[in-house]
Design a protein around this nucleic acid. Sequence first.
DNA 1: TTCCGATGTAACAGTGCTTATATAAGTGCT
DNA 2: AGCACTTATATAAGCACTGTTACATCGGAA
Lengths: 166, 166
Amino acid sequence: MTDPRVPDPSEQSLWRPLRLLQAAMDADIARVYADGHIDGLKPSYVMELLRLHARGPLTITELAESVGRTHSALSQKVAAMRTAGWVETVAGDDARSKKVALTGKARAVVGRLAAEWRATEAALADLEAEIPYPLSRVVTDIERALERRSFHDRIAEKLAQDPAWG
Amino acid sequence: MTDPRVPDPSEQSLWRPLRLLQAAMDADIARVYADGHIDGLKPSYVMELLRLHARGPLTITELAESVGRTHSALSQKVAAMRTAGWVETVAGDDARSKKVALTGKARAVVGRLAAEWRATEAALADLEAEIPYPLSRVVTDIERALERRSFHDRIAEKLAQDPAWG
DNA sequence: TTCCGATGTAACAGTGCTTATATAAGTGCT
DNA sequence: AGCACTTATATAAGCACTGTTACATCGGAA
């Protein structure tokens, strides 16, 4: 029952450690947010808040396009953020488009969010400096390799060579 | 309004490319499954099917423990897989525990799933060989660095140094 | 007036969990 | 045997999150 040709996902060689590492780092980032405990702020709002802070008031449509979602999805998210008191709608260029702007409450905490963000980036940069070959270079190495031949095509080729296939 | 001290997540330096890369590779793996178009097989079932194939019939509780979920969660997943015709319940060691086993239909396709899995691993191994410094070494490098000091602590330290904090 | 553009909202889909409860079967004690 | 307790599984109900489609509204432009 332990056929070596039958891979057991639990023993996965490469993909899994990478995922675990990334999940662990994500969890640590989440812990940082939790440490700072900003009351009622959902982590999923942070990106929008920082973007509004960096770019100033944006319309729903602009926000939607910047994250590749429908206006409806963003409208709902913004509505939730408004209910939670993080954003408010101000008059836009004409009366049909409104701009989403940070509230005072949001402005009071966005500095800390930005600091957390910078700290995460800085920690990552330090981590990079500490290892022999920077992660960012590996990423671009891989990206270049995948430009030459996509991951999908590589898998398909291996598959075609596998006698158990077809 | 474009304060350089205010990070805009859309311009994120390091984390984002890594996520995008991983998402792109995930999407390619999903495409491989879609190519093979095994009717009605949800990608989320693949792991369990391969595990059952590799290890033989397992109880719900064993499956639950192996993925770190409650038995209830697994019971529901197994029920769905049973409805879809991928697994059946066979008698276990005593009458209260049942073992989850692959059906003939599942056995007919699990060879292909295993081949896809192997192909993905092989493609990954080739990709590794193609880049100057293997991803797996970077992963262990980072793991070792994080053993010395956790990512959380690194971020917290950076945060403490940030005048905008507090 | 008619249409478009921007937004809001209702209804719902789907994944993947959780808690609490139900049912049944084994185990140990008296 | 009768009882309490534990183990294994099933199921009901619901939540959190995230997203979708379809429709409604309202202001501006031609």
